[in-house]
Amino acid sequence: MNFEEEFKKFIEEYEKSGFVSEDLLSSPRVIINESKVLDKKDIEGLIINTRKRGSSIYIDLILKRNVKLKIPVHMCMGVIKKEWAQRIIVNLKMESNSEMKILSHCFFPNSKDVKHFMKGKFEIGKNSKLIYEEEHFHGKHGAHVKADVEIEAGDRASYKSIFASKEGVLGRLELNYKIILLDNARGDVCTKAFGKKKDIISIIEYMELAGRNSHGLLKSRVATAENSSCIVKSVMKGIGDGSVGHVDCTEIIEGNGKISAIPIVEVYNKNARVTHEASLGKVNRKQLESLMSKGLTEGEATDVIIRGMLR
C-alpha cells in the first residue's frame, strides 16, 4: 500500500470507528498509523515535533506563552492491522498563560492482538489550562492498551481530563495517571469504561495536592458485564495548606463482572481536606423503578442507566 492509499484507508477506518474525519483534518493534528506518522499540522503558537526512535514514536508539543488555542488539537493514533505493537511517547509543555484542548482518539478496529503503549509527560505552566479528552475504539476483539501519564499543573494552572471508550470490547486496559497540583492548581480527572466479555481493566490514579489551595477530583465511572473485571485504585494526598480533594467512584456490576475499588485518601496538613465516596454493585434500585414505571423493562432500564453514567 502506498502512502496515499494508506492515508485513505486510515481515514475510512477512523470514520467507521465513530469519529469525524472533517474535524480531524481541519484541526492542528498528529496522525499515527502503527509506527508511522501519516500527517502532522501545527498552528501558530503550537510546535509539534515527531521523531522515531527504534519502534517508538516521540511526539513533542510545545504551546507558547500567552497562546490560547480556539480549536482543539487532535492526536489520532490508530492501528489498522490485526496485530501490531504501537509505542508512543508524548512530551507536552504548555508555557505560562496558555490554553489548549487535546482530543486524543485511539482506534484499533481490526485488532486481534494490537498493543498500544503510551507514555506521557505533561507540564502545564503557570496560569495555563489543559483539557485532555481521550476516546478509544478497540473493535470486536479488544486490544491491549497501557498508558502511563505524569502531569504537573503549575501555579493557578488547570488540568481536566476525560477518558471514555466507544462501543465494542476493550480487551486489556491499564491506565496509570500521576497528577501533581502546585499552588492554586485545579485537577479534574474522570475515567469511564465499560467492560464486557473477558475485558480486564485496571485504573490507577494518583493525585497529589502538593500546593497551597490546590483542588482535585478523581472520578471514575465503570461498568463490568459478562466476565469482565476491573480494579480502580484512586490515591488522593492532601499536602498543601488549604488543599481540597475528593475521590468519587461509581461502579456498576452486571452478569459475572467483578469490580474492586480502592480509594486511598491521605492528609499531611491540618488545613487540608480530602473526602471520598464510593458506590459499587448492582444498578440503583430506585433508578430502575423510576424507569420501569415509564414502561422500560429491567434490561432496558439498566442499559439507559449505564449508558448515561458512561456518557
Binding site: 465511572r221 461509581t250 440503583n284 430506585k286 433508578q287 423503578e289 423510576s290 420501569m292 414505571s293 415509564k294 414502561g295 422500560l296 423493562t297 429491567e298 439507559v304 442507566i305 449508558r307 448515561g308 453514567m309 458512561l310 456518557r311
Partner: peptide, 20 residues
C-alpha cells in the same frame, strides 16, 4: 413494566437523579 405499558404511571416521593 407491564403495569406501566397498560397506562399507569407513578411518581416517587423523592425521584432519583440520573447521571448523563
Amino acid at each position: 413494566t407491564k403495569r406501566a405499558k397498560q397506562g399507569i404511571r407513578f411518581m416517587q416521593q423523592s425521584p432519583p437523579s440520573f447521571e448523563g
